[in-house]
């Protein structure tokens, strides 16, 4: 378990994190969401023991991060923001250093190195100097470093930043594969990632916790939740007005000439009616589906609402 209680961090008079409270249980993959400068990285730095909190406390598997930093760090794998690594070292030398620090020796070390290298597919660059690697490889070296000792707690600050779509997919699969009995916290501003790998999402803004829930629950807060997306084959004059007149429809948005989004009234499920109505009208339909809701929409809604309130 990770418990974060009343966590505050200020740099001089700037508040980076304000009164943050949450817990993460084993088996959870927590997605940390928020605009740039929301305090995601700061929170992760505190959990990893790199920064000391101004107030509040963090405990990881029963160990207090400020008092028992060493024990916490032994349990934890951490990928700092930007995946820093010693650029003048070769990948092999760097990972060897990490393995030694993690207490591996002799054949056991070689075995572990081999396993990790295969897991993040670094075989082809082992002899290369890290400074000469592409951004994607550097990121993978960072991930390899974090999972070297098969840690109980894994904290990854923007693990897929700078990766191409294939590599992103790979890293997500890797995280999903790890997660069984571990605690994983990842920060990201790519929202599809949250739906793809996280079992829970936290949205923070200006250092404060705004939303906490399963990605699917958060999607329900979107106004696109249960909205019907309708794509017609032909352009029909006055289609918007006619759709608007339908019973139970709150609003209709025209995305382009042939694409409409229908927002039902509170909680209504309109798909069958819409289908019957379209059939009667004999409109040719290219695509019709109910939206699950858009995380991006929720994200924008909650983070910009806060900004407006402050302004």
């Amino acid at each position: 378990m990770i418990h974060v209680q009343n966590l505050c961090k200020h740099f001089d008079d700037v508040f980076a994190v304000e009164n943050l409270n949450f817990s993460v249980a084993e088996g959870e993959v927590l997605g940390f969401l928020g605009p740039n400068g929301a305090g995601k990285s700061t929170t992760m730095k505190i959990i990893s023991g790199f920064l000391a909190p101004s107030e509040g406390c963090v405990s990881v598997c029963g160990f207090d991060v400020t008092k028992e930093t060493h024990s916490v760090q032994q349990l934890m794998g951490y990928l700092p923001e930007g995946a820093p690594a010693y650029g003048e070292m070769t990948v092999r030398a760097f990972l060897d250093f990490i393995a030694q620090v993690r207490g591996f020796k002799g054949p056991q070390k070689e075995q572990r190195l081999q396993a990790v290298i295969e897991q993040v597919q670094l075989q082809s660059v082992m002899g290369q100097v890290i400074d000469t690697l592409s951004k994607g490889f550097v990121r993978r070296v960072g991930i390899a470093q974090a999972i070297m000792h098969d840690p109980k707690v894994l904290i990854l600050d923007e693990p897929t930043d700078g990766l191409d779509p294939n590599q992103k997919h790979q890293v997500r699969e890797l995280i999903k594969g790890l997660a069984k009995d571990k605690i994983v916290i990842i920060s990201t501003h790519i929202l599809e990632e949250v739906s793809a790998v996280c079992s829970r999402a936290l949205i923070i803004d200006k250092g404060k916790l705004i939303l906490d829930g399963k990605p699917s629950e958060l999607e329900k807060q979107s106004r696109y939740h249960n909205a019907i997306s309708l794509n017609l084959v032909d352009e029909i004059p006055d289609a918007q007005a006619m759709l608007q007149a339908l019973d139970g429809i709150e609003a209709v948005e025209q995305v382009n000439e042939r694409l409409f989004t229908l927002f039902p009234r509170q909680g209504a499920m309109l798909l069958p009616q819409v289908v019957r109505w379209l059939d009667k009208k004999a409109w040719q339909v290219e695509n019709l589906h109910v939206e699950k809701g858009r995380l991006e929409d929720v994200f924008r809604q909650v983070t910009s609402a806060k900004q407006k309130a402050r302004a």
């Binding site: 730095k45 990893s48 060493h70 760090q73 951490y78 700092p80 923001e81 690594a85 620090v101």
Partner: peptide, 11 residues
């Protein structure tokens, strides 16, 4: 270079 963060979070 930020490697301090790596170094200081290793046990």
């Amino acid at each position: 270079l930020g490697t301090i963060e790596l170094l200081m979070t290793l046990p």
